[in-house]
Structures are given as structure tokens and as C-alpha cells.
């Protein structure tokens, strides 16, 4: 089998970015990110509350970078990924694109990488807006040299739900259904994780903790804070307690990274295999 040609993959990736941006829901998410990264800082800074200790002020950018990632950015990931393939079937546009001398793998890779690049840009936007808002409201921020690293870790972690939603979009070929299933996975994983944490706290049984560690929300959500916590001074530790939550075990950085990779490889391989095998749907209504 011939290797995918980079020029074709790039063409589809650029197309996917434009297509995703043309959808109003993605643009709405961009607006929501902007609000989420600026309004809380402004409210906290102007309300006169003293809940934030003074020594945490230089690290408040971390809250803006990490807090939305745990859940909100996962929803952004599935919003982009769930429709990447399925919307092409729904609108009937896949047929025209694939009746050309391009391989299905090139199309698949272009769509996957294009969507993922857009998600990475949104994660970067979230980080930059957080730093800007924290600086404007709480003064100069410290530890910013760790920002590129944590953004990269967030991008990598987001691949978990992105690839799962991408796979579901290809398998069910209906964007709304793929979005509902992916969202249900996030919500179920979050709820099950909470119950497992409580069970572990009450019984001390490590079985509950082990299961909790392997849940997708635990893996995707715990890697960036863990990475960042290891680099920042103890003055910022109060922030991490708030972000990571009080209960439940978290996997080591290495095992979380490996398990995110496993989810990514399995989900994208299943999606690619199915895409290569199945007929190209003419138009799914």
C-alpha cells in the first residue's frame, strides 16, 4: 500500500480547518472560551473578596489554563471531532471529495489532523487569554516559562476524547448521535469517577482507585495539572488542590501519557479500518 502523500493530507487538513470554522457552533465555542478566560478574573479582582491568598497571585494564570481543560475543553474536542467525518456524510460532500485520485487514508489523516490542529489552536488561545487576563487583573505572572510545556501536554491529553469522538463520528455517521455518545462518555466517566473516589475514601480498597485511574476523564484531566505541579513552587499548590479536586487517585505522569496514547491509537485505528472498509455514504439524512 502506498504511503499517504503529505500534499494531499495537507489539502484536506486545511479544508477541515475551514469547514470546522464555518460551523457556527465552533465559533460559539471560541467566544465562550474568551468569556471563560476573562470574566472570572475580572469578577474576582473587582468583587473585593479576599479568598485568594496573596502569594498565589503570580500563578493565577495556571487556573485559567488548567481549570477549563478538565471538562470544557474536552467538550470542545468532541464538538470538533464528532462532526469531522459524519457531517461529510450528512451533507453528502464526502462523495465528491473521494471520487478523486486520493486514498481514503489521505482523506482520513487530513480530516483528523486538520480538526486536531484547530483544537490545538483553541487550547493555545485559552492559555494565552488566561495569561493576559491574569496579568491585567492580578499583576505580573510568574512561571510562564512552563506555559509552552503545559500547552503541549494539554494538546496531547485532548487527543483522547478527540480520537474517541472522531471514531464515533465515523462509526455512527451522524454528528448529533456521535456528539451525544461522546458527551455521555465524558459525563459517565466523570460520575463513575466520583463514585469510585468516594468508595475508595470510605473503604480504602485500592480496586476502586485502580479503576478510577483508567477512566478516560481521569487520564485526560490529570496529566496537565500533574505536569505543571511538578514545575511550579509550593506557593501555587493551593491552586492545584482546587483544580485536581480533593479525592481519588491519579495515575503517574508516565502511565497517564501511555494510556492516553493507547486510547488515541485504538480509537483512530478502529475509525480508519472502518472508513477503509465501509462504502462511502451518499447522503445520510
Amino acid at each position: 500500500m502506498a504511503l499517504p502523500r503529505p500534499s494531499r493530507v495537507y489539502a484536506f487538513a486545511a479544508y477541515e480547518v475551514r469547514r470546522a470554522l464555518a460551523r457556527k457552533k465552533v465559533l460559539a465555542m471560541v467566544g465562550f472560551i474568551a468569556l471563560l478566560d476573562t470574566v472570572p478574573y475580572y469578577i474576582l479582582a473587582t468583587s473585593g473578596t479576599k479568598i485568594i491568598p496573596l502569594q498565589v497571585y503570580p500563578y493565577l494564570w495556571v487556573a485559567g489554563v488548567l481549570a477549563p481543560f478538565a471538562l470544557f475543553m474536552q467538550f470542545v474536542a468532541i464538538l470538533i471531532a464528532a462532526g469531522a467525518m459524519s457531517e461529510e456524510y450528512e451533507s453528502g460532500t464526502a462523495e465528491l471529495l473521494l471520487a478523486k485520485p486520493v486514498s481514503r487514508t489521505e482523506f482520513f489523516l487530513g480530516k483528523f489532523l486538520g480538526g486536531f490542529a484547530l483544537l490545538a489552536l483553541l487550547i493555545l488561545l485559552n492559555a494565552l487569554l488566561s495569561v493576559a487576563a491574569a496579568t491585567l487583573t492580578y499583576g505580573a505572572q510568574a512561571g510562564l516559562d512552563t506555559l509552552p510545556g503545559v500547552v503541549l501536554v494539554e494538546v496531547y491529553s485532548s487527543a483522547l476524547f478527540f480520537s474517541v469522538a472522531f471514531m464515533l463520528g465515523e462509526l455512527v455517521r451522524r454528528s448529533s448521535l456521535a456528539y451525544i455518545l461522546s458527551s455521555a462518555l465524558i459525563v459517565a466517566s466523570q460520575i463513575i469517577g466520583t463514585y469510585l473516589s468516594i468508595a475508595y475514601e470510605l473503604t480504602g480498597n485500592t480496586f476502586y482507585e485502580t479503576i478510577h485511574i483508567y477512566l478516560p476523564t481521569t487520564l485526560a484531566g490529570s496529566l496537565p495539572p500533574q505536569y505543571e505541579q511538578s514545575l511550579l513552587p509550593s506557593a501555587a499548590s493551593r491552586l492545584f488542590q482546587l483544580i485536581l479536586g480533593p479525592a481519588g487517585g491519579t495515575p503517574s505522569e508516565a502511565s497517564a501519557a501511555i494510556l492516553v496514547g493507547v486510547y488515541l491509537v485504538v480509537a483512530s485505528s478502529v475509525a480508519l479500518a472502518y472508513f477503509n472498509w465501509a462504502d462511502v455514504a451518499r447522503r445520510v439524512n
Binding site: R8, R19, A22, L96, A99, P101, V102
Partner: peptide, 28 residues
């Protein structure tokens, strides 16, 4: 090989020039 489908579905956010530029990149 060129193909024109029955009731073509083409992305509405693109212009004809963009559609054709994409088709051109697909054929190399």
C-alpha cells in the same frame, strides 16, 4: 477521471474558485 454526481453536494461556505482549488490539489 472526472466525476460529477447527481444533485451535487458542495460545501456552501466555499466559492467556486475554492472548490476548484481543492479539486486541483486533490489531483496534484
Amino acid at each position: 477521471v472526472g466525476y460529477s454526481p447527481e444533485l451535487p453536494n458542495i460545501q456552501t461556505f466555499m466559492t467556486p474558485k475554492e472548490v476548484l482549488a481543492l479539486a486541483a490539489s486533490e489531483i496534484g
